[in-house]
């Protein structure tokens, strides 16, 4: 016979304290993330400007995706296509050089044969831009690339013999180029560190074996490093893609005065402007967010599908086939009908 005290002790569930501890996070998450998130979906089927209170069904989506007869409707559609294009251009333009640069540096820094001096120093220096906030980066680049003859880069270029100052701030490809460069500069250090971690995770015996077999460094890179790096490259790609599609800070801040640069307005800036600039068009803003959500999900799952190892796929198919055979055999073993 157990005492009541013993019974009570047994019935104490310590698990509930765990829930208490994570409760604050969930409360904060619920109020500040989940509710606004669901509200975005709700707002996307409501009107704009003066009709924010009216339910309009899928009208916002139709307008944004297909346009319409009148100027305001067609303008929404044209703008969405434009900002979507801008976003993709800016993302590609910073992701590809960023990945190439970080991959090259990561391979160099992890190569034992190269014996680079001051590795830690370089790693820190290359990571540093990532610590600087985007606001400061934008201010810095605005100063450096100021479009008149008074800007440092332009005055230097003109000293070198350039006749007219280059408009780095409002020129279509010039401004895009500066933003791509700034994004690459900010993020290549971060990507490099991740790729280095992944390379160092590859068993050194593979590299040694390749060395003994007389593989040159290009062969080592294409046959060992790159295939084994794939999961990390895919991971980088997914995170960069999500970040790239939501790119807001630099494109928003890299402008002078009130005027917008239409060539660098990204989809996130478009959403922000509809939401915060008067008159507020909540409907379009929310509908664009929802469209962005679907684009991200589709591209994200596409990346995941790419990540699936073809070997593993083949193996899976083989196992399936074997099972099917076994089943058939079982059937025939019982004689069948």
């Amino acid at each position: 016979m157990k005492s009541s005290a013993q019974n009570r002790i047994r019935s104490i569930s310590y698990a509930k304290y765990g829930y208490y501890f994570i409760l604050p996070f969930f409360i904060v998450y619920f109020i500040f993330q989940l509710v606004p998130l669901l509200n975005t979906f709700r707002l996307s089927v409501y009107g704009n400007g003066k009709t924010t209170e009216d339910f309009v069904g899928l009208q916002n989506f139709i307008t944004l995706i297909a346009g319409g007869d009148s100027l305001p409707l067609q303008a929404q559609h044209d703008n969405l296509i434009r900002v979507l294009g801008n976003t993709l251009i800016l993302w590609f333009g910073n992701f590809i050089p960023q990945l190439a640069l970080s991959l090259l540096l990561a391979v160099w820094f992890t190569d034992l044969n190269l014996k680079i001096k001051g590795k830690t120093f370089f790693k820190i220096v290359m990571y540093l831009p990532n610590i600087v906030t985007a606001a400061s980066v934008a201010a810095l680049f605005l100063m450096l690339f100021s479009k008149t003859e008074y800007g440092p880069i332009n005055s230097w270029l003109m000293d070198m013999g350039l006749k007219e100052p280059i408009d780095f701030i409002k020129g279509k490809w010039q401004s895009r180029g500066v933003i791509m460069f700034a994004q690459t500069w900010m993020w290549f250090g971060n990507t490099m560190i991740m790729l280095m971690a992944a390379i160092m995770g590859i068993s050194p015996s593979l590299f040694e074996a390749a060395d003994i077999d007389g593989a040159n460094s290009r062969q080592v890179f294409t046959k060992i490093t790159l295939p084994l790096l794939r999961p990390m490259v895919i991971y980088t790609m997914i995170t960069s893609m999500i970040g790239g599609l939501q790119m807001w800070d630099l494109p928003y801040l890299y402008k002078q005065g009130q005027s917008w640069n239409r060539a660098t307005e990204t989809i996130a800036v478009f959403i922000y402007n509809h939401f915060h600039v008067i008159p507020q068009n909540y409907g379009y803003s929310a509908a664009t967010s929802v469209i962005l959500f679907f684009i991200t999900s589709i591209l994200g799952s596409f990346c995941f599908a790419m990540n699936a190892d073809p070997e593993a796929k083949k193996k899976k198919a083989l196992i399936k086939e074997a099972k099917r055979q076994a089943k058939l055999q079982n059937k025939s073993a019982f004689g069948g009908f």
Binding site: N48, G49, K50, T51, S70, L71, P72, A75, Q76, D78, N79, V277, P279, N281, Y284
Partner: peptide, 16 residues
């Protein structure tokens, strides 16, 4: 200019 205005003022201005 017209497109720019139209994309911000979605109602209130007659465009026909």
């Amino acid at each position: 200019f017209k497109t720019g205005v139209a994309s911000q003022v979605v109602d209130g201005i007659n465009w026909d």
